[in-house]
């Protein structure tokens, strides 16, 4: 009897092996296999954080800062139909973050602080520990969040323009009123699921963040078109008057700076890889 069971089991397994492996159709692609040069995920984080920081700096100083001087308004309630205003820099980032979530790239982005205007953006737990470390050593903090299976990076978010300081110091809900230019006001937190990434992954993530920045800026321009007194949109910037750069002009200015920075990060890490 035992022999019989053994023979039947062996036959079933043999048939299954032939069915699954010998005569089987083409293998389904394993999407986790990466082709080409491999980089630690920190390189991807450095690239997207630099791209985002450049866009934020341009938006904060050249659009919000200079825009306010010529009469453009920026508000937390910018989406309200009756408010003729654009997004504040933190809300601009939220639009980028929202776009990333909808893209197929598994990259997450959040903005927080130890003294945020909205208390829901206040760091706690592991993030506040890493943020303190970041403020002490001025270096990005990296860690792994096991429950969501994501690698995490936190990059400092500096007060890059006088506008950041005055707005946060004057805001009635701000818990801190003595911010100074170049202070670390908070941090961007980035998530990605893989420990190592290919060059293609980095390119896709960069493309996703650029697309997010462009989408966020286009939303602002769309809102401007509904203003009672819309600014002229074209190739001029607010420093030249009541103007706004078109999406193409904005993107060109941003890409000029960001592409150089991204290439620098990639090359410096490729050299390290070769060593």
């Amino acid at each position: 009897m035992k022999n019989k069971i053994f023979i039947i089991t062996a036959l079933i397994l043999m048939t299954l092996s032939v069915y699954l492996f010998k005569t089987a159709p083409a293998l389904l692609a394993d999407k986790s296999i990466k082709v080409g040069s491999q980089f630690p995920v920190s390189v991807l984080f450095k690239v997207v954080a630099a791209e985002n920081a450049i866009a934020r700096a341009i938006y904060t100083s050249k659009i919000v800062g200079k825009g306010k001087e010529v009469g453009l308004k920026f508000s937390e309630k910018w989406k309200n139909k009756t408010v003729d205003a654009g997004p504040l820099p933190a809300l601009f980032l939220r639009e980028v973050s929202q776009h990333l979530e909808k893209s197929p790239v598994p990259l997450g982005l959040f903005l927080g602080s130890d003294y945020p205007i909205a208390s829901t953006n206040k760091f706690s737990g592991q993030q506040i520990e890493k943020f303190i470390q970041l403020k002490t050593y001025f270096n990005p903090a990296y860690f792994y969040s096991s429950d969501i299976k994501r690698y995490v990076a936190m990059f400092p978010d500096y007060a890059v323009a006088e506008g950041c300081v005055t707005c946060h110091n004057k805001h009635p809900d701000s818990p801190k009123k003595d911010w100074k230019l170049h202070d670390i006001m908070g941090a961007t937190t980035w998530l990605y699921p893989d420990k190592t990434v290919s060059l293609e992954d980095i390119v896709k993530a960069t493309s996703a963040i650029r697309s997010g920045i462009l989408t966020a800026y286009k939303k602002y321009l769309d809102k401007c078109n509904s203003f009672q007194n819309p600014p002229e949109i074209g190739d001029k910037w607010p420093e030249q008057g009541y103007f706004l750069p078109s999406d193409k002009t904005f993107l060109a200015a941003y890409e000029k700076e960001a592409s150089l920075q991204t290439m620098k990060i990639l090359l410096s890490n490729t050299v390290h890889n070769e060593k």
Binding site: K79, Q98, E101, G108, F110, G112, F123, S124, G125, Q126, Q127, I128, F143, S145, D147, I148, R150, V152, T189, L191
Partner: peptide, 20 residues
């Protein structure tokens, strides 16, 4: 467009306890 509690928001590390 303006979900007040989009699910992805809770992927931020600081929501670990709530996620649990």
């Amino acid at each position: 467009e303006d979900d007040h509690h989009p699910t992805y928001r809770f992927n931020e590390p600081r929501f670990k306890k709530v996620r649990e």
